[in-house]
Write a protein that binds this DNA or RNA. Structure first.
Lengths: 207, 207, 207, 207
DNA sequence: TATGAATGAGATTTCATTCAT
DNA sequence: TATGAATGAAATCTCATTCAT
């Protein structure tokens, strides 16, 4: 990962203050996520984010150099979590169907539980060119990771022959779209969604 | 349903001029759709839309009273098409699996072919409260139509027992998400996408 | 000269509207110049410039894409005039002392009379990197033009031997600095300044 | 002359701590000067000054009550030095041409050597009304001191008859402008500049 | 139908400055 | 003396929209 700014990068080893500030940044993120859910990420202003995080707008800039950096941090962080989950699943060594089930569950856990339904990691459009490219690259890595499970399954004859790329996108679409309708305070728990989704989306591949 | 404006509403019966203007409106829509695809709907300004449609910004306001109305028209129009397709499918009287296949194909046709990949009909956030509610209501009607096919299938024992609501949302998520990655000039035709998707998404339901 | 923006560049041949807008731009410039004189260029906000030009701040952006472009246009324009004057002088074919006298007069005419004492063309600091480089390059061309007269004079033995670079800078310093103290409504006319300056600054070089 | 603040003025007689703090203030000044040289004084923020002086922004306020006071201190200090030099020269009792040569050299020494090329003492615009007036008054005293030498020279027939006010401003313009182009790390020493300038600028007056 | 010019409201961001420690 | 965190005010700029023609 490349450095974004001199002042505040995840690369330099964390001093006492850095750690404190980073914890604060994470907290701001959560607040931001809930603001995003209300009007969509593009329509959410820095004022609203600041308010959600209980800061003055100016103070928000103490923690993030720009709206761009805030959004980037948001999306980067959740993609990291998802990638890590995908890697863990693959290391687990289960058969492809089970792996796929686990990845689906993991992504929904991250999206619906940890970030409480924020779609932040999907709204690539709101980012500036440079940062967008970086996020898109990471997102592609994640897509590849999922696609590889599908391909493995086809090769191992657990899954029927099909266009792995398209099916992977169908799966990710179903998952990503949850951010649009899922409400943490609603009646379905994230676990219920995960159960039904992993079931349904894997079934469609089984021979 | 209430009229939006005196001068210009899709609800008053069409005079000659109306029809002509409406054709123009449709054309502007297509142009707008391609602009939306570039930066996402929320980040696309009236100026860009005007430019894409080869009009001056001021002139755009001759055809649409506001950005809101334009967006509304856009989303309303494609939802209408999709609803109509769903009704036609149901009238066809096929068994649920085939009905579902047809609906999936129809929606992708509408989204990827007719509107050339514009996601306009999904971005409810960009609309003002009143119009949003109307679109959401229509969208819900469409979701219900699809869900009813799933429920029919479960009842008729073509489909396995499952949470019809969640599965319907998985399906619609997969379909809607295509707007995010599909490029008309890319290598996959919309028909190829439709074939793989309808196959995969129906398979997951079959007993 | 390279294009700054698509919308509004001096490169495209002038249509009717272009010409009108460009006249307006020139007028705004004059207004801006008088605003600059009050607090210095860096401390003059777009609001103040707009007010001086009797426009709303937003409307100012119809004519100039940014403060940067306005400043650039300002400085570029007066440098162009000065360069042209310098070229004309050299074409005149007089002896170096007379050439120098004429260039001094011309620059003061441009600065004190045409722009009414605005120092805009000197405040390179306020520009963004790219535009600054362009202006600095042009300014250097002007400095070279003046220096060449000094060098010619030394070679032709009209002027005493000396460090031509430093003397040129002394001359330009004296001239540029006038923007700091000259007031059009004051008692000295620009012509009086020009007479004394060209006399004094040329005398110092004569053998 | 009025006090600026109770806590911290250059006018109260120096206690031990005062002296120490003043040394520190002088050191900060030097650092600030080098920061000013980069973007011009108006574009240099307190953060940059603090950084240049290796202090935290907050700590900078321990030494200077405000940006205004810092700027004032800066300009006041160098004007004091220049005024003192001018007085010393006059006390020297040399003939006007030599006096003028010495004053020119002294000002360049102060500007280019002691303050390393900072233009701080010229940027009157950046000051608040009250402080500006004070500095302007002092600057006028300096201008008068120089002008008196010119006038003396005219009276003593060392210099040709001319508009002493304008010539003085030409001289000061040439000198002040050096701050704009002189780089301490460049190839010309301040002494070389002083030699050529004093030579050239005095020659122009000699009968 | 068409458009150049204009604008109010609001968005992001900066900056001098302060406060608690 | 020193500083991390905080802030109000203002600056630049954008944008949907309107008006006169």
């Amino acid at each position: 990962m490349v450095q974004i700014s001199n002042r505040r990068s995840t690369l330099v080893e964390p001093s006492r203050t850095r750690r404190k500030a980073d914890a604060r940044r994470r907290a701001i993120l959560k607040a931001a996520a809930s603001a995003f859910r209300k009007h969509g990420i593009a329509a959410t202003g820095m004022r609203e984010i600041a308010e959600a995080a209980d800061l003055s707008p100016a103070n928000l800039y103490y923690y993030f150099e720009s709206k761009d950096e805030l959004l980037y941090f948001c999306q980067d962080w959740s993609l990291d979590r998802m990638l890590e989950a995908a890697r863990a699943v693959r290391r687990g060594g289960e058969r492809p169907p089970e792996q796929l089930r686990q990845v689906i569950r993991a992504q929904l856990h991250c999206m619906l539980d940890e970030l409480e339904g924020s779609a932040a990691h999907l709204e690539v459009d709101a980012l500036s060119r440079t940062l967008r490219e970086r996020i898109v690259a990471k997102r592609d890595r994640y897509e590849s990771a999922v696609r590889r499970i599908v391909e493995d399954g086809i090769r191992s004859r657990d899954f029927a022959r099909t266009d792995a790329t398209l099916v992977t996108r169908a799966i990710l679409g179903a998952l990503n779209w949850t951010a649009r309708w899922y409400r943490p305070e609603g009646e379905k728990t994230w676990a219920a969604v995960a159960a039904t989704f992993s079931d349904y989306l894997v079934r469609g591949l089984i021979r």
